[in-house]
Simulated assay, not measured.
Amino acid sequence: MNHMYFTEEHHLFRESLKEFLQKEVVPHINKWEETGTVERFIWKKFGEMGFLGLVYPEAYGGMGLDTFYTVILLEELQKINSGGFAANIWAHTYLAMTHVNAEGSHDIKEKYLAPSITGDKIGCLCITEPFGGSDVASMRTTAVKDGDHYIINGSKTFITNGIYSDYLVVAAKTHPELGNKGISIFIMDRDVPGISATKLDKLGWRASDTAEIAFDNVKIPAENLMGEEGKGFPYIMQHFALERLIMGVNAHARAEYALEYAKQYMSERKAFGQTIDKFQALRHKFSDLYTDMTICKTFNYTVAHRLNQGEYVVKEATMSKLKSTAMADEVIYQCLQFLGGYGYMEEYPMARLLRDSRLGPIGGGTSEILREIIAKMTLDNKDYKPAT
């Protein structure tokens, strides 16, 4: 299957990335998990290696590479067993930076995208609100035009990189009376007066600085509007396809990691005079789990290929996230069981992996919301369109 999508250059990139992660990231993971703070030096190292600009234009320091370099980055980040660290990297690179690249003016890209690629600036994307959750259209944050400025008021929550980021990409309603047709996208520096953030305490993703952010009469220049006023909702929906595929790829990768670890453990752990990988009940359960993972992985690669060809894959990406995240939770739960009591111990990887994985069916649109989106497309024949 790999030869269908991955070239020799892709494989060389994967090996280089693995070596980098083992040398530069893995030695610090436990500390970052304990402190909830990823140190700034690692962002610069990622930037120096080009990992933050894989898909972005060379004009701003990117590499202009295809989607499968992103797939490789996502997969290998999952296999160092820190969902929080992985989230910090991909939320910056594929949530915040995606909007900057797609909707930002040349000046905005010079100011924010270029230093994001080098690791000198970290971004966060602020869409979800305390009272809205997956219901993006119901957001209450407002942006009122005041001469050549906008005044932002409201709050956002569950924001990855919400504490330590240098800039924020924020969705707000410029015309609340228009519902989802009144949403616009803005960019602002962290140090603008009126922005405050509170760190959230989470079940998993412990290395990630997830925050609730408040905007109290935040005044920003009108040129900080990205794209057209009132087009924020279709911009968000368009990029959700990428976010959901990312979470699908993340899911199959962490499931694969769990299975690889369980396989090794089962080949060494003995009970009743033989290694436990010889017991039929465990062998057959492992076979089922490996099959489920492989089916999701194969589908996700197909969707990534179509996205790389420029197709609008919102339906398929939604399916990817829905099935892959549920699969990963089940695989990791069962792999923890394969380890018995050791699976429950923090010195083994499964406990953290189980906690981190549980966010999959929640973040980026809950599974319940995704099922309704798929129902609208398949039962009601709703045809979502890309932003124009």
Rank of each mutant, 00 (worst) to 15 (best):
residue 149 H to K: 14
residue 87 A to Y: 07
residue 152 I to M: 13
residue 86 A to V: 11
residue 187 I to N: 00
residue 171 A to C: 10
residue 154 G to T: 06
residue 136 V to S: 07
residue 150 Y to D: 07
residue 132 G to Q: 07
residue 142 T to P: 02
residue 103 E to K: 09
residue 161 N to Q: 00
residue 116 S to M: 06
residue 142 T to S: 07
residue 186 F to H: 03
residue 164 Y to M: 06
residue 132 G to K: 03
residue 86 A to P: 10
residue 137 A to D: 06
residue 95 L to K: 09
residue 123 G to P: 01
residue 100 V to E: 09
residue 115 P to F: 04
residue 135 D to Y: 08
residue 135 D to L: 08
residue 84 G to I: 10
residue 116 S to N: 06
residue 146 D to T: 10
residue 127 I to D: 00
residue 102 A to K: 11
residue 157 T to H: 03
residue 174 T to F: 04
residue 185 I to F: 03
residue 101 N to M: 12
residue 184 S to P: 05
residue 82 S to M: 07
residue 168 L to N: 08
residue 172 A to T: 08
residue 95 L to S: 13
residue 188 M to V: 09
residue 139 M to H: 10
residue 111 K to Y: 11
residue 97 M to V: 02
residue 120 D to C: 05
residue 173 K to S: 13
residue 85 F to K: 11
residue 167 Y to W: 08
residue 128 T to C: 11
residue 116 S to L: 04
residue 93 T to C: 14
residue 102 A to I: 02
residue 147 G to S: 04
residue 111 K to W: 08
residue 82 S to L: 10
residue 155 S to F: 05
residue 89 I to E: 04
residue 87 A to L: 15
residue 137 A to N: 05
residue 158 F to M: 13
residue 126 C to R: 00
residue 86 A to N: 10
residue 171 A to V: 08
residue 146 D to W: 12
residue 102 A to N: 13
residue 113 L to G: 06
residue 124 C to T: 11
residue 135 D to K: 09
residue 177 E to D: 15
residue 145 K to H: 14
residue 108 I to K: 04
residue 89 I to Y: 07
residue 139 M to C: 09
residue 188 M to I: 10
residue 181 K to C: 05
residue 173 K to T: 11
residue 142 T to L: 03
residue 146 D to V: 14
residue 102 A to H: 10
residue 124 C to S: 15
residue 143 A to V: 05
residue 161 N to Y: 01
residue 170 V to T: 14
residue 98 T to K: 13
residue 92 H to Y: 07
residue 179 G to A: 08
residue 118 T to M: 05
residue 147 G to Y: 06
residue 138 S to F: 02
residue 140 R to Q: 15
residue 134 S to P: 15
residue 116 S to W: 02
residue 149 H to W: 11
residue 105 S to P: 07
residue 106 H to W: 09
residue 157 T to W: 01
residue 149 H to T: 12
residue 95 L to T: 09
residue 179 G to V: 05
residue 145 K to S: 13
residue 82 S to F: 07
residue 91 A to W: 13
residue 176 P to Q: 02
residue 141 T to S: 12
residue 112 Y to P: 02
residue 90 W to V: 15
residue 111 K to N: 13
residue 116 S to R: 03
residue 123 G to K: 00
residue 125 L to T: 03
residue 123 G to A: 01
residue 89 I to W: 06
residue 143 A to S: 08
residue 134 S to I: 15
residue 137 A to L: 01
residue 101 N to Q: 14
residue 133 G to L: 09
residue 129 E to W: 02
residue 162 G to H: 00
residue 83 G to D: 07
residue 146 D to R: 14
residue 186 F to D: 02
residue 166 D to C: 01
residue 130 P to G: 04
residue 183 I to G: 06
residue 132 G to F: 01
residue 87 A to N: 14
residue 173 K to R: 12
residue 151 I to M: 04
residue 93 T to F: 09
residue 94 Y to A: 11
residue 127 I to F: 01
residue 127 I to L: 03
residue 86 A to T: 12
